[in-house]
């Protein structure tokens, strides 16, 4: 008899928690399909859930959905910002870190006039809280872009890239490392600095294996070209060959074959 009662009590306690988890999951699923209204309905049902963790997740979900519910108005973004601020300032759990990430993104990309300094401040606080979290690691590449293009406009490009390089010390995942290396290398070209400075970053990004297909094709050509220009013929040949093997139908195949023949002859 006691077992039956325990089971019943267990069911009464667990069932609502299960239902909340399922509904919150349904909210996230709706958002993956860009159905923000549907997601909001799911999250709104649990804003005051008896389970504090479920309620925090629901508030975080509501904030994210508000950023995607069309038409997105400044008032809606502000509502999301207030929600995120409350979450981020009241804990260090996953919703708090997610909220901090989005506070950075709102300042970076959602405001009519972006606030690079505020975005960087939020991302740095995220790193200070738990730099291994998915949120902090995702913020690193974006913080690098702020360092390179927006913060400290009076600094020389080389000095800005130096600041971005410091972020590599906080990158603990291959994806984050790859992002920072790629951002620096591309900025070397953008600022028309000596291209040799990009080579080590390109090599590192390639080694990490996290580049998407199009970026990888570009990086293979860039490594080969910069290696050729710096006189490292074996490395140039190696990357020309890899490029041709992976991209036999690329528009550049003809010129790459010509360059490969040149460095092999050489």
């Amino acid at each position: 008899m006691r077992t039956v009662i325990a089971l019943l009590v267990g069911l009464v306690l667990v069932a609502p928690a299960r239902a909340a988890a399922d509904e919150l999951a349904a909210g996230w699923q709706a958002l993956t399909n860009f159905h923000a209204r549907q997601a909001l309905e799911a999250f709104d049902r649990h804003l005051s859930d008896a389970n504090p963790a479920a309620a925090r997740e629901a508030r975080f979900g509501r904030g994210v959905a508000l950023l995607d519910r069309q038409p997105v108005s400044p008032a809606q973004v502000e509502e999301a910002r207030v929600l995120f601020t409350a979450l981020a300032d009241s804990g260090a759990d996953d919703p708090a870190q997610g909220a901090r990430f989005f506070l950075g993104r709102i300042a970076q990309h959602h405001l009519a006039i972006p606030d690079a300094a505020e975005a960087a401040r939020q991302f740095r606080r995220l790193l200070a809280t738990d730099e291994n979290s998915v949120w902090a690691q995702s913020a690193l590449g974006r913080l690098a872009l702020l360092e390179i293009y927006e913060l400290n406009p009076a600094w020389t490009p080389a000095a800005r890239l130096g600041e971005a390089e410091k972020l590599l010390a906080h990158a603990h995942t291959s994806a984050a490392q790859s992002d920072v290396h790629y951002a620096i290398a591309d900025a070397v070209f953008f600022y028309r600095l000596s291209p040799a400075g990009a080579l080590s970053h390109l090599l590192a990004a390639e080694r990490l294996g996290r580049l998407d297909w199009t970026a990888r094709a570009e990086v293979l050509v860039q490594i080969a070209e910069l290696s050729r220009l710096s006189g490292n013929r074996p490395q140039a040949a190696q990357f020309y060959r890899t490029f041709l093997k992976e991209n036999p139908r690329d528009l550049r195949a003809y010129i790459v074959k010509e360059r490969l023949a040149e460095v092999e002859k050489g």
């Binding site: 999951a25 996230w28 699923q29 709706a30 958002l31 993956t32 860009f34 923000a36 997601a39 997740e57 979900g61 994210v64 959905a65 950023l67 995607d68 997105v72 997610g98 990430f101 989005f102 993104r105 990309h109 959602h110 998915v134």
Partner: peptide, 15 residues
């Protein structure tokens, strides 16, 4: 594009 994909990316991670 960035705003839209941010929300979907967070949702994918949470889901």
């Amino acid at each position: 594009n960035i705003r839209r994909e941010d929300a979907a990316a967070a949702a994918r991670a949470e889901w």
